[in-house]
Amino acid sequence: MSHLQQPVPPTLPQTRQALRQHVRQLRQQLSAAEQTEAATELAHHISGNDSLLAKQHFALYLANDAELNTEPLIKALWQAGKDVYLPVLHPFCPGYLLFLHYDRSSVMQINRFNIPEPQLNCARVMPVAALDIIFTPLVAFDAIGNRLGMGGGFYDRTLAQLPADSGCQVIGLAHNCQQVAAVPVAAWDIPLQQLITPAKYFDFR
């Protein structure tokens, strides 16, 4: 999907960091009521999507830094009998993620970014290519599917492992305010296939 990417401007690092800071501030300004409404709307959108609900293995994330809250969605997926997985910082391959099965009995720990993650248990690891849907967090996105993350590159490196013929759908989740006119693209960025906000469904394929 590299044809979606736009030319990299000369001031790429500065531009990306300024955009990242600006959009993070926008979502941090959302009130608790707005966050709750957005999370509820997201869960309703996805729960009512027959195509998505036909899948079984869903990777999500736990919200941090005013990201779109996934807890109502996780509960809805559990209620529908779906398997949910959360990212864990890879213990042996720095910069990569593992996805571990997550349920109400999961033992959680706080990682070095102060984000809760399931305690590592190799028996609960799901290979990335075996997931049906990976819902990814992000800082900003544009109308052609370019995604700006927090800058660590964890999702880009991990998603790059997906084979070209993988049936796994990568879907971004974001607040409405996180859409921007254009995301400055770097060579390592993995564009989104789809994205869902509380107000809209985007298909970039």
Rank of each mutant, 00 (worst) to 15 (best):
Y155L: 04
P184E: 01
H101E: 13
I171N: 09
V185Q: 11
G151T: 03
P10A: 10
A174I: 00
H3G: 06
A182H: 13
N114M: 11
R104Y: 07
L120N: 07
A38C: 02
A59K: 04
R124D: 14
A182F: 04
R16A: 11
G153M: 03
N64S: 13
L30V: 07
F99N: 08
L19F: 08
C168M: 06
C168G: 04
G152M: 04
L86W: 03
L62R: 14
I134A: 10
I144K: 13
L162E: 12
T36N: 12
R104W: 07
L159F: 06
L89S: 12
M150P: 00
M126H: 08
Y102S: 09
S105G: 05
C93E: 15
H44T: 13
Q194W: 07
V180K: 02
N111S: 11
K55M: 13
L138N: 01
A59Q: 04
Q194L: 08
N111K: 08
G151A: 02
L173C: 01
C93I: 11
S2P: 00
E71G: 00
A130I: 00
L159Y: 08
D65K: 12
H175A: 05
A54S: 15
C168K: 05
V185E: 01
V128T: 14
Y85V: 11
I196Y: 03
L77S: 10
Q179W: 00
E71A: 13
T11E: 14
D156Y: 03
D189R: 11
P163M: 06
V8I: 09
T70G: 04
R27A: 00
F154N: 07
A130F: 06
W78H: 14
L131K: 08
T15D: 14
Q35E: 10
K200L: 11
H57Y: 13
N176Q: 10
G95L: 11
